[in-house]
Every structure is written in structure tokens, then in C-alpha cells.
Amino acid sequence: MKFKVLIVEDSKASREFISAAVESISGLEVISTSSGFEALKLLPRHRFDLIITDINMPDINGLELISFVKQSPHYRDTPLFIVTTEGREKDRDRGLALGAAEYLVKPFSPASLEGLVRRYLKLA
């Protein structure tokens, strides 16, 4: 069975960059969206094995998404990564406090993301 990864990022180019890095791992299916709202809708429709989210988004912020996931009995065990940029340490720390598993600071290499994904999905 394929692992499913949800990517939430409002910048198209960033989203494609992250998707490409994750998709390069065989056996993964990526579903990506530009909005937090859309992510909330996608959650019950799939059984995600990993969620990667941006913090600053126009509708709901990434922290709110993390909080929602971590409070929900259905999704709370799904590991969550935060994608953030340099200088937003406060928001990053809050994300970690809310239960995010890892964070990535842009710019990051596709290899480092790939390593994290493999570790959390227990892929060789």
C-alpha cells in the first residue's frame, strides 16, 4: 500500500518543489493544496501518513491546522512537519509546542526533506 503525504503550502513554486522532493521517494503518493481550508476538507477523505504544512497562509494559519490535527481523535497520530522561513522562530516554536514533529527552514535541500520523510515513514 502506498503512503499518502499531504502538502499544504500557498506558494505554487514552493509547493511544487516540496512535492517533487517527496515524490522522488518511491511508494509515496502526494496530495497537495494551496489552502488550509482545502486541507481541512482533504483530511477526512484520505488517510494521510504524513502532513507537511507552511505556517503563513491566507485562510487559516499552519498552527491552527496543527492544533486541529492534534486535537482530533482521527488524525492526532499523523506526524506533521512545519515548513518555515528564517526569522520566524517564535511561530516555529509554537508549532513544535502544538505537536509538530519536525520543522524545515527554507531554503532546505530536497535531500534533507527526503531523509526526514523516510525516517518518519520508516522507509529504508
Binding site: 506558494s11 513554486a13 514552493s14 518543489f17 491566507p58 522561513t85 527554507k106 531554503p107
Partner: peptide, 26 residues
Amino acid sequence: RSAHSLKGLAALFGQEGIATLAHHAE
């Protein structure tokens, strides 16, 4: 937010000049 997005985008694509300015403007 615009400056922030620009920073993330430029950093991701290795556009250091734009990323630097976006970072300081942000």
C-alpha cells in the same frame, strides 16, 4: 506576507540577492 512569500520562494530557488532583500524588508 508578500515579502515573506518572496523570501521563501527566492531562498528555495537559490536566488540569494532577492532572498536577502526580502528577508530584511520582511
